[in-house]
């Protein structure tokens, strides 16, 4: 269970998070939606400690995320970044097996490579991709490699930051299906950030609508269309008119 309580974060005069409260039960898939610049990625980065919140607490299974052994804490997480964030200087298999080649989860070289190739297969990539470099891959393949890296160490919690941004609808569908399959298969807790409503319906158990630094609505995806929440309705229907101001 991830619990975010009264999280506040400002950058100068820009108050991005203004008291965010959110619970993500263990083994469920939560999708956070909201307009650009509403602080979705900031919320996610606060959990990982990449950005420190100004106030508020974050607990993971009852333990304060800012305390304790940081390596052990991060070893529980996998993350797929928006642009893949693959390391250009390393071949694909070393990207996937990065965590398995160093640190507390270090495995022998051949075993790490075998796991990387198995994870690449799991995301639909062939073995010959393993020795190529990220720059030689298409956007969709890079996302898949990022996904393989996120699941390589079999984490308990996986974060997906805009997993389908920049992909064509067919590739988006493939990635959405993969995410859903992997999360169910691993029994992991998932947290996804997206604008893509097709992704929301494919990936989510629960959704949370973030606007003006607070969660405006949260609930099961099955209740999303009948929420009665004006923010969520405007967002789902993509209307210019409504409580969310559209800058023209």
């Amino acid at each position: 269970m991830i619990e975010m309580t009264d999280i506040r974060k400002s950058f100068g005069s820009n108050h991005v998070l203004r008291g965010l409260n959110l619970s993500i039960p263990k083994g469920t898939s939560m999708v956070i939606i909201g307009g650009s610049g509403t602080g979705k990625s900031i919320a996610l980065k606060c959990i990982l400690g990449l950005i420190k919140q100004d106030s508020g607490t974050i607990t993971v299974d009852g333990t304060d995320a800012s305390k304790g052994d940081r390596d052990a804490f991060l070893a529980r997480f996998g993350m797929l970044f928006q642009g893949g964030a693959l390391f250009d200087s390393l071949p694909v298999w070393q990207n996937v097996a990065f965590r398995l080649l160093r640190g507390s989860l270090k495995r022998p070289h051949d075993e790490a490579r075998a796991i990387a190739i198995e994870k690449l297969r799991r995301v639909g990539l062939k073995e010959d991709v393993a020795d190529r470099f990220p720059a030689e891959l298409s956007g969709g393949m890079q996302k898949r490699v990022g996904l393989a890296r996120a699941i390589a160490a079999e984490p308990e919690i996986i974060f997906f930051d805009e997993p389908t941004t920049g992909l064509d609808p067919i590739m988006s569908g493939v990635i959405n299906e993969l995410i859903r399959e992997i999360v169910v298969e691993m029994g992991a807790t998932a947290m996804t950030i997206t604008h893509d409503m097709t992704s929301v319906r494919a990936i989510a158990d629960n959704i949370a609508m973030l606007h003006e630094g607070v969660i405006q609505w949260t609930g099961p995806v099955s209740e999303m269309d009948q929420s009665g929440n004006p923010y969520l309705e405007q967002f789902i229907q993509g209307k210019a008119e409504g409580p969310i101001e559209a800058v023209r």
Partner: peptide, 16 residues
């Protein structure tokens, strides 16, 4: 470039 493409954040999440 690693910073702007979130590779440094990725390093941190990979316990490095």
């Amino acid at each position: 470039t690693m910073k702007v493409t979130e590779q440094i954040d990725a390093l941190v999440t990979l316990s490095t």
